[in-house]
Design a binder for these strands. Structure first.
Lengths: 251, 251
DNA sequence: TGACTCTACTTGTCTAGACAACTCTATGCA
DNA sequence: TGCATAGAGTTGTCTAGACAAGTAGAGTCA
């Protein structure tokens, strides 16, 4: 016999039937939720395709697609002839690829909300000006936005934008679209430069994120460029206890 | 160039001289090759599913899978009701390049010193074994090294190595060369997987790094692979206040 | 001219069944 | 006891057809 399966909660009623979207997304989200809730600890055997077919009343191809995509996302590991297992880090996924946070959160089936704390034009400080290659004192755009996933602060985004590259930046409604999305839409990304560090957030950031002032945070500072000029410099602060970056590359 | 329109015998096609592996991988590779050869410039309309079905003599689901995976890889863009288009390559993956710490420190004109705290063979724990794809309890190599830059602890490197891939690993003198260098020299890196998080170091790590136990640290866990098997898993701990990762990518 | 509808084409998804490949366990035999 | 093998269970893949959803263009009508 194959290894014993964790006694699956007969939870058919809650998710089968009326989930949002296509059947395969329902199966996928059901498994994602279970993984997030630690229903299957790392390495545990998950339900087989046949069991999911019975539970959701869909065809095997549909279940197979859901599982295949979870595997591609690194959430599960599958072994032919053996079974499907919960992968190690079901914490949070993000690659260093520049990804739109909104799409990432929604992709997890969760709710994304942006709180815009600042959206205005400011004179460039003496430290900032060379970063954006503008004259000190000339106007630059500044936004300060906190992103929430299901109501929980996930990222504090402090961003300066070069007006020469994105002149209409300030007119966007950042409660509806993210700065990343707006800049992707209006500029031609050519190069990015990033630095990642672990440190304490500033007092203001800690307050905005709702964490203690001495919490270890993951701070990513990213500068992006068109072929000619800097587009933006962003300081992205994640509370370390609920976020981890991960990625993969293949030379 | 176009494969012969083999009649409905599905398996016949796969064994008759055409590319390796499953039909969907053949379709996928064919399109990848075409994209690499600039057969479809950025934004150009690519063959429809129906055309590929006719060309390869496979079912539409098979073609669909190939295209869906290319889309997931960012190589094509698909619009329902319109068609499939060659993508402009812009969000290519980031390179969190694996750098040899020694070269990095020396490159800064500083002095590099390694303190080897552990260098031995151990039985693989139940948690570690699947990470290296070895049997639990079988021997794995373990090194624990602290790297100092100009006498200041910069990184605590806790590393496990798969003996099947690097059988002579333990014979190296790690006061003279780094594990990264040794493994680069003796193995063929194919893929790497990493996760980055901000957290507190363990008590032992804090002691080895000479920092307070509650210091925010940048922790990078990296697993590397040859084409066949895991090479090593390393936990690299940097005191957050004196280190930051940085990188750059250019599509 | 301008607005509308109809049609052809495309992708998105699902189904029910089939066979292949693989792993693990239990059984039977020497 | 030790080994070979059969069988059950699992994932991997493919098929042929179906309907839904979306787009673009041609044609129609006021």
């Amino acid at each position: 016999m194959t290894p014993p399966r964790a006694a699956a909660t007969p939870r058919a009623a809650s998710t089968s039937g009326t989930g949002p979207g296509a059947p395969y997304t329902r199966v996928k989200q059901h498994l994602k939720d279970g993984l997030a809730a630690d229903q299957w600890p790392s390495g545990a055997l998950m339900p087989s395709e046949a069991e999911l077919v019975a539970q959701f009343g869909v065809s095997r191809m549909t279940v197979n697609r859901a599982l295949r995509e979870l595997q591609a996302e690194g959430l599960v590991e599958r072994i032919q002839g053996v079974g499907t297992f919960a992968a190690q880090l079901h914490k949070v996924s993000s690659t260093l690829t520049i990804v739109d946070l909104h799409e990432e959160i929604v992709g997890r089936g969760h709710h994304h909300e942006s709180r815009v704390h600042l959206q205005r034009s400011e004179p460039a400080s003496i430290e900032l000006a060379p970063q954006l290659e503008v004259a000190p004192g000339s106007a630059v755009f500044h936004t300060l936005i906190v992103h929430l996933e299901n109501g929980v602060p996930l990222q504090c985004e402090d961003r300066y934008v070069n007006p020469a590259v994105a002149p209409r930046y300030l007119q966007a409604d950042f409660t509806r679209i993210t700065p990343t999305h707006e800049l992707f839409r209006t500029t031609a990304l050519w190069r990015a430069q990033y630095s990642i560090e672990a440190a304490q957030a500033t007092r203001q950031e800690a307050r905005l994120l709702g964490v203690a002032a001495d919490t270890a945070c993951l701070i990513l500072v990213r500068r992006t460029f068109t072929r000619e000029a800097p587009i933006t410099i962003a300081r992205l602060v994640h509370p370390g206890n609920r976020y981890s970056l991960h990625g993969e590359f293949q030379p």
